[in-house]
Design a binder for these strands. Structure first.
Length: 646
DNA sequence: AAGACGGAGGTTTTT
DNA sequence: CCTCCGTCTT
C-alpha cells in the first residue's frame, strides 16, 4: 500500500511530494500525513536521480530522523545520509571543520549538557571571584547566555536590550564562560549551531562545498526553529534555493527555547517564489477529537488560518473527569487502562501525557500497584543518570584531555582522597610547568617532575596513565576496558540500586556496540558526541506492550489510539510560570492542542480538586482551557469527588 | 583537607 | 521529596 512512492496521495500531498526545485512551504495540520509527505518526497527525489548524499534533512528529534531514514529506505532501498536534528547535523559538520574557525577548539571537542554547562559557570565565578546578581541561579544565567547566542547578539547588547541589572558584570561573566569553554575544548548545545553558522559565514569556500554537497534541504517542524537556526538555514541553502520546510504554527511549543513561529509565518517573504501547500485533511483522529481541538485553538489570536477537517468516524465523546485527589487521578487512569486491556486493547496503544515531569511519580506508583507495565520517557534521562555520567567522564577524558570538568568528576567518583583543594594546587603546578593538567599528571616522568606528590596523588596519576593507555579502538573493547579499570561496578555494588546502575552501565556498552555496527566511521569521539545529543523520546519503543508516559512536549510527532492528559488544571496547564503575558498562555494552549491531536480514537482529560504539591495538599481549579472545548463533544465525569454541585 | 551529616531551598517544558 | 550547599568532625 505504501510501497509505491506516489500511491495513495491526495492532490495537495502529491503536489508537495513531486515538487522538485525551488523553495516550498508545507503547512501541515496535525495528523495530515506530514511525515508521509516528507518521506515520500525524499524517496521521490532519489528515484529522480538525486543522490542520497545530496539531501540534508533536519528534524526535531533523533527518533523522527531515524523513522524518516527507515521509511525512505523501505521505499527506495537507500537512505539520506545527512539526516538528523539540527544539533546532530551541526555536530557532524563541526567534527570535520571546527578547526577552521580557529577558536582554539579541536575536532575532539566535548559537548556539555545543561548540568555541565552550569558547572563551568560555577567554576568561572569561583575562579574570578565574581557573583551573579541576587536571586539569579547559574541555570537562569546560562539561559540568558543561550538566548543571546540564539539571537546572535553579543551578550552585552543583549543584556542592555533586556534591561538586565549590571550588564557589564554579566557580560564579563559571559565572556569568561566562553573563554573557559574554549580552554576545556567544549561546546554547549547552542555553540553547535552558533559555530556552524559562523563557519559558513566566515568561510565562503566551505559554504560552497556545503552548497554543492546538499542540493536539497528539508526542515521539519519549522515552526520550532529559532533565529539562529533560521540563519543557519539561510546559510545552508545554496543558489538553487531547494529548500522545503514543513510545519504547523499551531504546534509551536518551544518559544522558551527561542523558537519563533514568525519564521514559518514569514517564509513566503523570505522566498517570494515559494510554493505553498496546505494539508488540511486529518487522517488521524475522530471527528469529535478534531472538533475539540479546532474549537480550542481558535481562541489564539495570531494564527495562520487553517481549517482542519476529517472524513473519519464521529467517535466517542471526549471525557473530562474531575477526581478528588491526584492519587485518585492516577487510580482512575489505571482502572480505565485495565478496562481497555480487558476488552482486548493493546497497552502500546495507550499514552498518558502531563505538563511536568514531576507528575509522573504518582502515576508510576499506581501502575506498579496495579501491575500495569509502563515505559516512562523523559524524567531522569538515561544519559543523565549519575552512573552513566560517571562512566562517560572516563571515556570523555580519553578523547579530550582538556576536559577538566570530566577530570573533576572522575576524581570525585573514584573517592581517591583528592579533593578540590588538591586539584586546584595541581592545576597551579601544571600551569607553572606549562603543561595541561591531564598531560602533566599522566606524563611518564610525573613523579620526577613533581617529587612532592603524596601517595594519593601518585596513585591517581598512575590510574590516569592506565586510563589513557587503553586503546580507543575498537570501540566496544575500549568501552569495556574503561568500565573495568574505572572500578565503577565495585563502587556501586552494595548500594540500594546497585543492580539497576550496573545494568545501565552495561546498557551503555551495548549502545556502543550497536553504534559501531550502524556507523562505518564509528570511533569513541563520534560515539560520545552522538550520545550527548540523544533524548529519551528517541528511545520510545512503539511496539513493546507497555503504556507510555511522557510530557506534552515529548508527545509532539507521535500518535496513540487512546490518550490521557492528566493535571488539566490552572497553574499546571496553563503553567503558573507562563501566565505573565498572553503569548505565554497562547503557547500553553498550543501545547494542549498538541496533546489533544495525538489521540486517534479516544481522549480523556483529567483534573483534580486537590493535589499534593511539595508535601502540601493544595486546592486546584480546572484549567480555563476546559471551558473552551465544545460542550457537545465532551462528557463530564466525577470520581472520588463528593461535594460537587452543578 | 576530605568526607559525613544536616539544614535550607526549590520543581516547566529540551537539544 | 530530593538536591545542593555549608558546616562540622575526623
Amino acid at each position: 500500500m505504501d510501497d509505491d512512492i506516489l500511491s495513495n496521495l491526495t492532490p495537495p500531498q502529491l503536489e508537495a511530494v513531486i515538487h522538485k526545485d525551488g523553495p516550498m512551504l508545507v503547512i501541515a495540520g496535525a495528523g495530515s500525513g506530514k511525515t508521509r509527505v516528507v518521506t515520500r518526497r525524499i524517496a521521490y527525489l532519489i528515484s529522480q536521480g538525486v543522490w542520497p548524499s545530496q539531501i540534508l534533512a533536519m528534524t526535531f528529534t533523533n527518533k523522527a530522523a531515524k523513522e524518516m531514514k527507515s521509511r525512505v529506505a523501505a521505499l527506495v532501498g537507500e537512505e539520506p545520509r545527512a539526516c538528523g536534528t539540527f544539533h546532530s547535523c551541526c555536530a557532524r559538520f563541526l567534527r570535520s571543520d571546527i578547526e577552521l574557525l580557529k577558536t582554539g577548539r579541536t575536532r575532539d571537542f566535548t559537548i556539555y549538557d545543561t548540568s555541565e554547562q552550569q558547572s563551568v559557570l560555577k567554576k568561572v565565578l569561583k575562579e574570578a571571584n565574581l557573583k551573579l546578581p541576587e536571586g539569579m541561579t547559574p541555570r537562569a544565567f546560562h539561559e540568558l547566555i543561550s538566548m543571546a547566542k540564539c539571537r546572535r547578539q553579543p551578550f552585552f547588547d543583549f543584556a542592555v536590550g533586556e534591561n538586565l541589572t549590571a550588564p557589564e558584570r554579566l557580560a564579563k561573566i559571559a565572556d569568561l564562560y566562553e573563554e573557559k569553554m574554549v580552554q576545556l575544548n567544549a561546546v554547549d548545545f547552542d555553540d553547535l549551531l552558533y559555530l556552524t553558522a559562523k563557519l559558513l559565514e566566515e568561510h565562503p569556500d566551505v559554504r560552497d562545498i556545503y552548497h554543492n554537497r546538499f542540493r536539497y534541504i528539508l526542515i521539519d517542524e519549522y515552526q520550532d526553529t529559532n533565529h539562529l537556526q533560521y540563519e543557519l538555514m539561510r546559510l545552508l541553502v545554496g543558489p538553487s534555493q531547494n529548500i522545503h520546510v514543513t510545519g504547523d504554527p499551531d504546534q509551536s511549543i518551544y518559544s522558551w527555547r527561542g523558537a519563533d513561529y514568525h519564521n514559518i509565518m514569514s517564509f513566503k517573504d523570505d522566498y517570494p517564489d515559494a510554493r505553498i501547500v496546505r494539508l488540511e485533511q486529518n487522517y488521524r483522529s475522530t471527528q469529535v477529537i478534531l472538533e475539540t481541538a479546532n474549537h480550542l485553538i481558535v481562541n489564539n489570536g495570531n494564527r495562520f488560518e487553517k481549517n482542519l477537517f476529517t472524513d473519519n468516524d464521529i467517535g466517542c465523546p471526549v471525557v473530562d473527569i474531575t477526581t478528588g485527589t491526584d492519587l485518585q487521578e492516577a487510580e482512575w487512569v489505571c482502572q480505565k487502562i485495565m478496562t481497555l486491556r480487558a476488552t482486548g486493547e493493546d497497552l502500546k496503544d495507550i499514552a498518558i501525557f502531563y505538563r511536568t515531569n514531576s507528575q509522573s511519580r504518582t502515576l508510576e506508583e499506581a501502575f506498579v500497584r496495579n501491575h500495569v507495565p509502563y515505559q516512562l520517557l523523559g524524567g531522569i534521562r538515561f544519559y543523565e543518570r549519575a552512573e552513566i555520567k560517571d562512566f562517560l567522564a572516563f571515556l570523555r577524558l580519553k578523547v579530550n584531555k582538556s576536559d577538566i570538568i570530566s577530570l573533576e568528576r572522575i576524581i570525585g567518583c573514584l573517592g581517591c582522597g583528592i579533593g578540590a583543594a588538591t586539584t586546584a594546587k595541581l592545576e597551579g603546578i601544571a600551569l607553572e610547568q606549562h603543561k595541561p593538567l591531564v598531560e602533566f599528571l599522566a606524563a611518564p616522568d610525573f613523579e620526577s617532575r613533581y617529587p612532592k606528590a603524596n601517595a594519593k596523588v601518585k596513585a591517581f596519576a598512575k590510574f590516569l596513565r592506565n586510563l589513557l593507555e587503553i586503546p580507543m579502538a575498537p570501540l566496544a573493547e575500549c568501552v569495556e576496558q574503561v568500565l573495568e579499570l574505572s572500578g565503577l561496578e565495585d563502587k556501586y555494588e552494595g548500594q540500594i540500586n546497585a543492580e539497576d546502575r550496573i545494568d545501565n552501565m552495561h546498557e551503555l556498552i551495548s549502545n556502543a556496540i550497536t553504534f559501531a555496527d550502524e556507523h562505518d566511521d564509528a570511533d569513541l569521539n563520534s560515539f560520545l558526541q552522538e550520545v550527548a545529543l540523544v533524548a529519551d523520546v528517541d528511545a520510545h519503543d512503539a511496539n513493546a506492550d507497555f503504556v507510555t508516559l511522557m510530557t506534552l512536549h515529548s508527545s509532539k510527532g507521535l500518535e496513540f489510539p487512546y490518550v490521557f492528559i492528566t493535571g488539566v488544571e490552572e497553574g499546571l496547564l496553563p503553567h503558573a510560570n507562563s501566565l505573565y503575558d498572553e503569548d505565554g498562555v497562547e503557547e500553553e494552549r498550543r501545547l494542549f492542542y498538541v496533546g489533544i491531536t495525538r489521540a486517534k480514537k479516544q481522549l480523556c482529560l483529567i483534573h483534580c480538586a486537590t493535589r499534593m504539591m511539595w508535601n502540601h495538599r493544595e486546592p486546584r481549579m480546572p484549567s480555563r482551557f476546559l471551558a473552551e472545548l465544545p460542550e457537545e463533544c465532551v462528557t463530564k465525569l466525577y470520581y472520588g469527588y463528593r461535594n460537587y454541585r452543578k
